[in-house]
Design a protein around this nucleic acid. Structure first.
Length: 291
DNA sequence: CTTATGACCTGCAAGC
DNA sequence: TGCTTGCAGGTCATAA
């Protein structure tokens, strides 16, 4: 569910609310939420307890909080994960998976996740290309908000992938942070159909597309992210409102803002792609999708 | 090595 | 009303 802007909103909230606080206790209510912490729930709770939380960081859709002991607590929100800062004693959310209580008796940190695709883990930091990252994040490419993001290198990586442009854009090892919403929005801005093969895109067009992806994510961040329902919220439970600014995602049958043609939805990898059939013509050799 | 395809979950809305 | 089907912001292991 959450893409770079939504995860960044959560990161900022965490940075504000947990930095400098020491963990008093940890409760894991659903084992699947810490499945990427291989030593298990008990180990997760014991090792996190007593640690002070420092800076909250992010790469792509992963976020983590540095711990005083030198490790980090890593989080991925998956499709439906939330990090909430809630007063002690507030009623448990239906899908509460992990609770972190602090020594200062202030608000607790809760990981809530309906679909359990997300999760938390304790991970060691490793240095990759001059940046310290949790080991589980070491394969994720820099995202466009990273000060050391190399746009030229990212364009080269995208073009070298032998696939369709939307698949490349969603590949987190080439450029991170872009998901289904912002992929469709940037393809619309670039007037490209997602099934266009990367091999036939010029360097300039690919750079333009990447620029649109960066821009649309910045705009979404300025609006607090995109949410269609209560599944995406910031640490205080509030929704962003970039959904009002979406040009194509979820806009089936509504008129294209550029040409008025009805936006179409097409199946894509067990999900959907939205595009303007006039501004973003399908490549002729694209396989027609059944159903 | 690269690339494509399901599997992993719960809940909601639409259609019959 | 109740059942079934399809769909949802993502990633990963596995297969080819």
């Amino acid at each position: 569910m959450p893409e770079l802007p939504e995860v960044e909103v959560v990161r900022r909230g965490l940075h504000e609310h947990v930095t400098g606080r020491t963990v008093a206790s940890v409760e894991v209510l659903h084992a699947r939420a810490i499945r990427r912490h291989l030593p298990g729930a008990a180990d997760f709770a014991v090792r996190l307890t007593g640690q002070r939380m420092d800076a909250a960081r992010r790469r792509g859709k992963y976020l983590w909080v540095d711990l005083s002991g030198g490790e980090a607590v890593l989080a991925h929100l998956g499709m439906s994960g939330q990090m909430l800062v809630q007063p002690v004693g507030a009623p448990d959310e239906k899908h509460l998976r992990v609770r972190v209580v602090f020594e200062d008796d202030g608000p607790e940190l809760r990981f809530v996740d309906q679909r359990t695709f997300g999760g938390l883990a304790l991970d060691e930091l490793v240095e990759v290309d001059g940046t310290w990252l949790p080991r589980q994040v070491s394969h994720i490419a820099r995202d466009p908000m990273d000060p050391e993001f190399d746009a030229d290198a990212a364009v080269r990586a995208l073009r070298s992938r032998k696939t369709d442009v939307k698949r490349a854009l969603l590949d987190q090892t080439l450029v991170s942070g872009v998901g289904n919403i912002y992929a469709d929005e940037s393809l619309w801005r670039a007037r490209l159909h997602g099934l266009r093969p990367t091999a036939k895109l010029t360097t300039a067009k690919t750079a333009e597309l990447l620029g649109h992806a960066t821009q649309v994510m910045l705009e979404a961040l300025g609006q607090g992210g995109t949410s269609f329902d209560a599944l995406y919220v910031n640490v205080n439970g509030q929704s962003g409102y970039f959904d009002r600014s979406l040009a194509v995602y979820g806009q089936e049958d509504r008129p294209c803002a550029r040409c008025g043609t009805a936006i179409v939805r097409e199946p894509f990898m067990n999900r959907s792609s939205y595009s303007c059939p006039r501004c973003q013509p399908r490549p002729r050799d694209a396989k027609t999708v059944a159903r």
